[in-house]
Design a protein around this nucleic acid. Structure first.
Lengths: 240, 240
DNA sequence: CGTAACTTTGAGTAACATCAAGTGGCGTGG
DNA sequence: CCACGCCACTTGATGTTACTCAAAGTTACG
């Protein structure tokens, strides 16, 4: 199996239904026959941690559905400043942009599995699958709302509010509710969080330390977090 | 179409087809019969400068198409901090969100004319108008790309870069190309620009003054701007 | 012509960035 | 198994940008 330097792997030995893995994600809105048609234009793709699904500026030939793992979307300025525009988790669509090139890069934070669709075929198929089109429109709309929320974070919130807001959002998406609060396994580095929140890695650290000292969060290793009370953390988010 | 400088349109006097005014905007993707069906669920709405189309949190009962004038989308934090998430100009859609309530407020910067659609009827109608649905999806996708661009502005750019970037975007949308550079009639206040760029009104002023002193821009009254050379302004945007 | 709202300018400050040093976890190789 | 080194993370000291507060100047409008 050929693995290039970006860690991309197109599985050549795919089963009869390469998109089996993502059926669960899309399956709710399509019946078996429709899924079959979709599978016809789908290819299973896996990424190693750090691998690249596509780079900002690449021809947007493909659409992706994230099946497992987590991705980071980011944009770069010419001098190297980076803005992470979002983190993606299973079920999220990727590459919906209608422009000819991807407006951001997509890289794997952890090992990830994706379902890849030829863009033109996918769009053509939408015409015959109104429920899928509705689903995609709903996803785009939700993404837009999330982007607007994040504009508020970046434009108007303090460092502590930014971190609290982002932690709450991550908890909602990938947190595990336990008997005593919530547990969170961060898939991204402090630098990723910094580029997502518009801060520096140092400020992210200091802010986490401060929250830790106040008992709002507790750490379990570098990437593990425990949040005893979500409502307390929410109190730091600026949203209440 | 007769549109004066403030964005005020002639009164819509053809009662039978309330959406005549916005035919031009949507007309490209629909034929006459389809437009007729669309008109059936449309209502013409006008706003005075400062008027409200809807407020953040209102039930999202309607979709709008901006026909003339300009709007401001904004979100508020409980303590009054405000983030302007976008400025809208003729042809833009408004309220695409699929959530039950609007995620932001929409207010008129100038007198404005809108075409209002009952949300449920509009969505139902999409099923029979695949070209319109495609159009809406494309609009949503473009809006998403713009939001991502603005995340980069808010998260990683300096004050000067933010102002330069925003001015360039406004020029592209509502600027008039003259023999010697570009002319721009800003429909929004310094405070609006501040809340859009994540700065304060004072910083916006200082930054404009600085660009003026450097000859990058020239002022014509409070809201009028002249940009002799767009490439020079672009040099301050951080994007090159 | 007067008033209110908006804009501009100035001085001081606070929040976060930058620069720099030190710590800790983890994989590798001895 | 332990020493080593790397890299991410953390912490500290200093610097800079943009914010805050204040006041004066403009513009719009009755």
């Amino acid at each position: 199996m050929a693995v290039d330097r970006t860690g991309t792997t197109a599985a050549p030995d795919r089963a009869r239904r390469p998109c089996d893995l993502c059926d669960a994600a899309i399956g709710k809105v399509l019946d078996a026959g429709e899924l079959g048609r979709l599978n016809g234009i789908a290819t299973a793709v896996t990424l190693e941690a750090g691998g690249t699904a596509f780079l900002e500026g690449d021809d947007s030939s493909y659409l992706f559905n994230l099946v497992s793992g987590s991705l980071r979307q980011s944009k770069l300025l010419p001098d190297g400043r980076r803005q992470v525009t979002g983190f993606l988790f299973p079920g999220d669509f990727l590459g919906l942009s209608t422009a000819g090139t991807y407006p951001y890069s997509a890289e794997a934070l952890t090992a990830a599995a994706l379902c890849r669709f030829d863009r033109v075929s996918f769009i053509r198929m939408l015409e015959g699958l109104p429920r899928l089109e509705r689903h995609v429109l709903r996803l785009a709309s939700r993404e837009l709302a999330q982007a607007h929320d994040h504009l508020l974070v970046l434009g108007r919130k303090t460092a502590t509010e930014r971190i609290a807001t982002v932690l709450l959002k991550l908890v909602a998406r990938i947190g595990e509710l336990g008997s005593a609060g919530c547990t969170l396994d961060l898939p991204m580095s402090r630098a990723d969080l910094a580029d997502y929140t518009g801060l520096t890695a140092e400020t992210v650290c200091r802010t986490l330390t401060q929250l830790r000292k106040r008992g709002v969060i507790a750490s379990a290793g570098l990437r593990g977090l425990h949040i005893p009370r979500l409502d307390v953390l929410a109190g730091y988010s600026g949203d209440l």
